[in-house]
Nucleic acid binder design. Structure first.
Length: 259
DNA sequence: ATGTCAATACAATATTGA
């Protein structure tokens, strides 16, 4: 079972990449982020024409998440993260696929540091941790997949330049502590479980020739519950999609679980 | 600081968010 997370950076602008990915990789579950479209603008007919269906939580202009599956849509469990009824951002959707619980996450970027945006990021992180505790209590195979907007460590395996990114919200001690606190609650970072070392970047900025000089970092993560981690066969990044025409700035990142 | 991009408001460019 191949479960993928892919921050599209605009589903309409990226429709050729999306359809191509479905045809070439045939994921069993595809979690999307930054679809950047309202619910009624979601291109479901194109997705159905590609043999997939889905559930989505859109928003005009920015944010927006979805979960796609072959043939029929997954069983929707939740739209939006609990804990703040005033949160208007579309950043979380949760569904069940073949007995596996899947959350598609678009965690707030949080830049610039020291503003309300950074405070919102940390608050959202904590709400996600609390929801994760509820999910773990179910003791089921569960995957929280998405753009977590956090670079876990200073290692060159996680970030091309500590100096260049030092003041970014993705690298702040508070962001990392929030991520670690979730991991320490019992979740497994799939890429690092499969590959303790080695650069597995998932994002390369459009500016400054970052892709051409491999100036990337690792922010798209799949966190596994113990019941999912027991079934982990492989994990990786489909890096070549970043180098294609009209590419997203993220690459699809995936796990394969034993059926 | 950006060698960039997408979406929006608006009507050719500026703003926002990344």
């Amino acid at each position: 079972m191949k479960i993928v997370t892919y921050n599209l950076n605009g589903i309409r602008a990226r429709l050729p990449r999306l359809v191509e990915y479905l045809a070439e990789q045939k994921p069993d579950v595809l979690c999307l982020q930054e679809i950047k479209c309202a619910d009624d603008a979601f291109p479901i007919s194109d997705i159905r024409a590609a043999g997939y269906d889905g559930v989505w939580h859109g928003q005009k202009g920015f944010n927006g998440v979805a979960i796609l599956t072959p043939e029929k849509p997954p069983t929707l469990r939740r739209v939006g993260l609990p804990g703040d009824p005033d949160d208007s951002h579309s950043r979380y959707i949760e569904a069940e696929v073949d007995g596996v619980v899947i959350g598609s996450i678009y965690l707030p970027n949080g830049n610039p540091v020291g503003t309300e945006k950074f405070a919102y990021k940390l608050a959202w992180f904590e709400r996600l941790r609390e929801h994760g505790v509820e999910l773990l209590a179910e003791e089921r195979p569960t995957v929280l997949a998405g753009d977590w907007n956090v670079i876990p460590t200073d290692s060159p395996d996680d970030v091309f330049s500590v100096r260049a990114m030092a003041h970014d919200a993705l690298m702040q001690p508070e962001s990392r502590a929030a991520f670690r606190r979730i991991l320490h609650g019992g979740w497994t970072d799939a890429i690092r479980a499969r590959y303790p070392d080695g650069a597995h970047y998932t994002f390369w900025d459009y500016t400054a020739g970052c892709w051409q000089r491999d100036a990337g970092f690792r922010i798209d993560h799949l966190l596994l519950s113990p019941q999912a981690a027991d079934r982990l066969l492989d994990a990786g990044v489909d890096k070549d999609y970043r180098g294609r025409e009209k590419a997203s700035d993220h690459a699809p990142t995936w796990v394969r679980l034993e059926d």
